[in-house]
Simulated scan of single mutants.
Amino acid sequence: MNSVSTEIKQLLTDQKTEWELAGKNFSGLENVQVREFQFDGFTVKVQFNPGRIVSSAAKVDKKSIEARPCFLCAANRPVEQRGVTFGEYEVLVNPFPIFPEHFTIPAFAHKPQQIKGNFGNMLDLAQAMDGYSLFYNGPKCGASAPDHFHFQAGNTGFMPLDDEMTALKEKYGDTWEKDNVNYCAIKDGLRNFFVLESASKMYMINAFAYIYTELGNQESEEEPMLNILARYIDGVWRILVFPRALHRPLQYFADGEENILISPASVDMGGVLITPQEKDFMKIGKADIESILKQVLLPVDQFDKLTTKLKQ
């Protein structure tokens, strides 16, 4: 096992005993309730996880961000929290976990959440963190700290998508090869996303940069909306890019019975929807899941246009 993976596993073991909050919340995962929904060729799980209300309901507008101290800056972290250094990042135990092994990986520097200029580092981290899926949530796509650049990671196999890729590519994929990168555009009826696979870091960076540019608005400096999942498997990087259309679905803002407090991010795209409120966990159905994911992801027509450009 890679030394970084070994170090962070030990870190997690230690932090569960050293840090009361982390120990309590990781123990709480043993009692988390899960419902499974079967779609055509894949599974979506819904997890009732009250501890995630901190993230799901996070206020990420500029005024709210400026009014609170940055909880990813070292000076503002709990005294019990410590990490493992990897380059310009520090791997920390996430005290509000979704995964049995859940880490937040902030940059040492306080800089905005923007994947541009940091994607190569994501590939390096994915390669170093054997047995983990690395993920990135854009500043308006699930990141609860859009003011401080960070990745997250969780143990591989927890998200259904980890084990469904081969079947999804065969059933729903449009595949092609270009510049030493294998592409697959997948439309599975809920999610529209791209799979990029390559053994070359340079070609992978170039391929992602093109997608990033095509998704962007030349009149705006804001980052295009996206989520990214990354793994390094047998010498090959596999990157999943989920282009987004919305930060949060209509259900998030609805009143009364129509309200469902879900703020989709990378883990939700991977097939685990997080509901911090029990009422939502009990009532959510397949139609709700389909509605929520279709709203927040790039619509089919725009996705198809982007696919055509990528093939040229």
Rank of each mutant, 00 (worst) to 15 (best):
M1V: 10
N2A: 14
T6C: 14
E7P: 13
T13D: 11
L21G: 12
A22N: 05
S27M: 12
L29P: 01
E30Q: 11
V32P: 11
Q33Y: 06
V34K: 10
R35D: 13
F39T: 00
T43L: 11
V44M: 04
V44R: 02
K45Y: 15
N49V: 04
S56K: 11
S56I: 11
K59I: 06
V60P: 01
D61W: 00
K62I: 06
E66K: 10
V84W: 09
V91H: 04
P95R: 11
P97F: 08
I98D: 01
F99V: 03
F99Y: 06
P100I: 05
T104M: 03
A107L: 13
H110T: 06
H110V: 07
I115C: 10
I115N: 12
K116P: 10
A128Y: 08
M129S: 07
D130Q: 10
D130P: 15
Y132M: 15
S133E: 13
F135I: 04
P139D: 03
S144A: 01
S144I: 02
H148G: 01
F149E: 02
Q152G: 01
G154F: 01
G154W: 00
N155V: 07
G157I: 01
F158N: 13
L161V: 08
K169E: 08
K178H: 12
N182R: 13
C184Q: 04
K187V: 09
G189E: 03
N192M: 01
N192A: 02
A199T: 08
A199G: 08
S200E: 02
M204F: 04
N206L: 11
E214L: 15
G216R: 03
G216S: 04
Q218Y: 09
E219V: 10
E219P: 15
E223M: 04
N227W: 05
I228L: 12
L229Q: 03
I239M: 06
L240K: 11
F242D: 01
R248D: 03
P249A: 02
L250D: 09
F253Q: 10
L261G: 07
M269W: 07
V272C: 11
V272Y: 09
I274H: 04
Q277F: 13
Q277S: 14
D280M: 12
F281H: 07
I284D: 00
D288Q: 05
S291H: 15
I292L: 04
L293E: 03
V296C: 00
L297I: 05
Q302M: 14
F303V: 00
L310A: 02
